[in-house]
Every structure is written in C-alpha cells, then in structure tokens.
C-alpha cells in the first residue's frame, strides 16, 4: 500500500517535471523547500486530532454512562445527544462551531481569544464524543450478565460494579475501535481548511497559489496525502494486530 503511494508520487513528479517550463526549479526541490511549512501545518492537524480525541473521549465516556443509566430521563437525553452528533456531517458541525462560537471568551477578568483552530477542534470533538459514547454502550452491553450478577451478589453498588468490574473489561474491547476512530479524526482534520484554519491542507493550497505552477498540483497533494498515510497506516495496522490479540479463542 505504502509502496504504491511512493510509486504514484515518483511518477507524478516525473510527469510534472516533463511538463515544467525550462528554467524553473525542479519539483522535488520545490517540495523540499516548502516541507518545513507543511510540517508546521501537519503538526496543527495532529494537535487538533489529539485534542478532539482526548476531550471527545472524556465527554463520550460520560455520555456513554448516560446511555446505560438506570435513570430514564438521563438515558433519553443521552440517547438524543448521541444520535444527533453521530448522524450529523462533520463539516456541518465544524461550520456551526466556527459560526456560533465567539472570537474570545471572558474567563474571570481576562479575555481569552478563541482562534479558528480551537473552534474547529471543538467541532471535531462533538462527533468523537458521540461515537465514543456508542463504543462505551456497546462494550458495556457485551459484558456477560453474570458479571453484573456476581458483583451485585457481593454487595457492590452499581457505581462500584461499573468502576471495578465492568469498565476495566470494556477498555480492552474498546481500544481497537477507538484507535480506528482516531485515525478517522486525523484524516478528518483537513476539513478545517474549508473554514480557514492554517493546517496542512490550507497551507498546501497557499503554496500552490503562490508558486502558480499547475504541474505542481498533483505531486503536492500526493505529498500531503503521503504525510497522512504515513501517520495513519501504522495506526490501522496496530488496530488490526490488537483486534487479533484480543479475540476470544
């Protein structure tokens, strides 16, 4: 898979080179020239994905516990929130966050600015939260009823049963799909380019328009793609390996 991508990249560089007007710097040199800038942008993509995943996971755990609550209104409300954010397109959520969130917030006496990337991160956090909530619910329900019964018979409260018996067993089951979700969030971060965040996708566009050379188009975007691929593919492989290891014989 990775080899294919490299071949495509080399080919497109070759083709671009052939199309290039004489006297212009080579495509490879151009790509290398802009690499530090693109790396900066990519670092923002990773930062956004980390934050969205971390915050979304914490919120999603709480929402997931709401989904299995014994209190009916809590369960109903959690269900509504989960369904809403799970079934909304990520881009729409991004737009809403960009448009509805203020430019800055006042915390105590100080005014904290809210840059575009922070709002975009918030937009990505929402679907992560809803998806993690579903993961929690599914994992909890996959634990055999005997585990609940044994805990109850030992006089554990419901919270103790969740904390000591059920959730620790869920972690293992949730890890592979959770990693999968993370990879999806990473490849989802370029959506933020549409709302003007200076991440790798936006910067690639900026580079291309400043260079003004059409033969750069295909190799540059392939190069960007390779960055994402190099980051996400190992995650996908690790997910598969983990799934295989956790499989119940």
């Amino acid at each position: 898979m990775g080899a294919l991508l490299i071949i495509a990249l080399v080919l497109s560089v070759g083709v671009g080179e052939a199309q290039a007007a004489p006297g212009t710097p080579s495509i490879l040199a151009t790509i290398l020239k802009w690499t530090p800038l693109l790396a900066q942008g990519f670092a923002l993509n990773i930062t956004m994905s980390f934050l969205a995943m971390a915050i979304g996971t914490v919120l999603g755990l709480a929402l997931g516990l709401g989904l299995i609550s014994v209190i009916r209104p809590v369960r109903g409300f959690s269900w509504l929130v989960t369904q809403f954010f799970r079934n909304a397109p990520w881009l729409v959520l991004l737009f809403y966050c960009i448009l509805l969130m203020p430019f800055d917030v006042r915390i105590g006496g100080t005014i904290v600015p809210l840059p575009g990337w922070a709002k975009a991160t918030a937009g990505l956090t929402l679907p992560v939260m809803a998806n993690v909530a579903e993961l929690v619910r599914g994992a909890v329900q996959s634990i055999p009823a005997g585990q609940w019964e044994a805990s109850e018979a030992l006089a554990f409260s419901r919270l103790q049963t969740l904390r000591l018996v059920i959730l620790p067993q869920c972690v293992k089951r949730m890890t592979p799909p959770w990693m999968n979700l993370y990879a999806l969030v990473v490849v989802g971060t370029p959506l933020a380019s549409i709302v003007g965040v200076n991440e790798a996708m936006t910067l690639t566009g900026d580079v291309l328009s400043s260079e003004g050379r059409t033969e750069l188009l295909v190799p540059m975007y392939l190069y960007l793609l390779a960055w994402f691929f190099a980051y996400c593919y190992p995650i996908a492989r690790a997910t598969v390996a983990l799934e295989r290891r956790f499989q119940v014989p």
């Binding site: 055999p144 005997g146 585990q147 044994a150 018979a153 006089a155 018996v165 293992k172």
Partner: peptide, 17 residues
Amino acid sequence: LRRKVGMVFQQYNLFPH
C-alpha cells in the same frame, strides 16, 4: 442483605481481569 448472603454461580462469574 447481600453482605450476609453469599452466592456461588453455575458459571463461576469470576472477574477475568
């Protein structure tokens, strides 16, 4: 009540972790 009454199950139901 359950502190006074112990119970053992057919499927053992030990905590596997």
